[in-house]
Design a protein around this nucleic acid. Structure first.
Lengths: 238, 238
DNA sequence: ACGGAGATTTGATCTGGATCAAATCGCAAT
DNA sequence: ATTGCGATTTGATCCAGATCAAATCTCCGT
């Protein structure tokens, strides 16, 4: 299986997909014990470092994954180098585009991550055979579509300050901590710029502006705390 | 059934969903004869005028539709009035967001259109019961997601001229004519601006610029011809 | 044909965010 | 600690597209 570079932790030849046991991925959560066993015999658990490309834009979709830890960014780049991040995915999301031969975007680990990798053919067969899997991937697709459309509003109609506040709000919502009042940014300034359709300088300026206004504290370059989440929300025009 | 304003052409009490017979909608194309019959007994064929709101943002999703003719725009508006068109749908697309109670966007006929309207509960039951319907709606959701992400790149990273060229290209691709070298714009300048994240003035200026460059001819306000489709495509950086 | 109102185009000016340039920071290797 | 280098911040200036303003154009109703 030709998958992304990265350390192979376990070749799952056990009866179930080991990668997803602890934290059910979208796929594995929808399968029967028998199917999990079959999938497990053909799946790989992979640890990927930040920056590792999981799927390359324009490459053949030869495998799919569940994210079991970390954050994955979906990115489109133009021939002249301009690029746009078109989605962020978190555990336990499914990564891939079923039923299309060539990927129109790249998927790259934004943080260190773990993914569970399945061969394309096997998964597509299971989708067609298994109503619950079809249902759960349909549900994820609809959720991603909602998120993409929400982000289209941000890209098309919000100001730079609103864009940055929207991103912080989005990250906070997916943060692991219960309070989510303090979190690590899974993205560099350049990646934030590519997500928001801005330049790194503008991102940096808007972050320091939010800091000076007391809406956020920048503990260090990758760590933010939000004293009052409502104050942040108020920066985003609904 | 509390549906959009518009003339009711046929109350389909026949054995099949009359609205979709001629030109299968996504839903009706996936149903067995028996299911079509049941759906037909509860569906309405509606003719809606341009501008007619089919679904209101924030309203309850109480029905779904197939488009059988015309173009429908999906729109999100902010409390201060800024708005963004987040999708265009053409026959035979399905319109609606299954499994979510409240709509996060509005759907409005961009041109005069015909839709076939089903009650929510019936359709959701059929989705859960019918693998082929689940499959075809999943496929549409994935296609819309691809389109939304492609548009995110346009919104975030393309210039005004590239944006306008992208829109013309998109419309041409969905035009009815075989050549698609001449087509009617289903959108006003204001709607184009809301789709592209621009102002109407900028849209107008870029259209006249493309005209002066000889890439398009503006036969009249709503009708465009493209002498050389490749010249248009070259305006869009890949 | 004649208003009239909204839609569109065109012109003049302004500005938010881009671009160009230069510190400064963070951190890994020595 | 020191060096070196990429990431980030900060500053100065520019410009694509917004905003403000005014013609035109379309098309409807009379």
């Amino acid at each position: 299986m030709d998958v992304a570079r990265g350390e192979v932790l376990v070749i799952s030849t056990s009866v179930a997909c080991r990668s997803c046991q602890a934290r059910h991925g979208v796929v594995c959560g929808a399968l029967s014990a028998g199917q999990l066993s079959e999938l497990g015999r053909h799946s790989l658990r992979r640890k990927v470092d930040a920056g590792c490309e999981i799927i390359a834009q324009g490459s053949e979709n030869s495998f799919y994954s569940n994210i079991t830890r970390g954050v994955v960014k979906l990115c489109k780049v133009m021939s002249d180098g301009r690029q746009q991040i078109v989605g962020l995915q978190f555990a336990p999301d499914f990564v891939g585009r079923p039923f299309v031969r060539e990927s129109t975007l790249s998927a790259e680990a934004a943080t260190d991550a773990e993914i569970c990798v399945f061969p394309r053919n096997l998964l597509e067969r299971m989708i067609l055979e298994t109503r619950e899997l079809q249902r759960s991937l349909h549900a994820q697709a609809l959720n991603e579509l909602d998120a993409a459309r929400e982000w289209m509003l941000t890209l098309g109609r919000r100001t730079a300050e609103e864009k940055v506040a929207s991103l912080l709000h989005l990250i906070a919502a997916h943060a692991e901590t219960a309070t989510s009042t303090a979190f690590d940014l899974p993205l560099s300034r350049a990646e934030i710029a590519d997500f928001l359709g801005l330049t790194i300088e503008t991102v940096s300026r808007q972050l320091t502006r939010l800091r000076k206004e007391g809406v956020i504290r920048i503990e260090n370059i990758r760590h933010i705390t939000v004293p009052d989440m409502d104050a942040l929300a108020k920066k985003i025009s609904g």
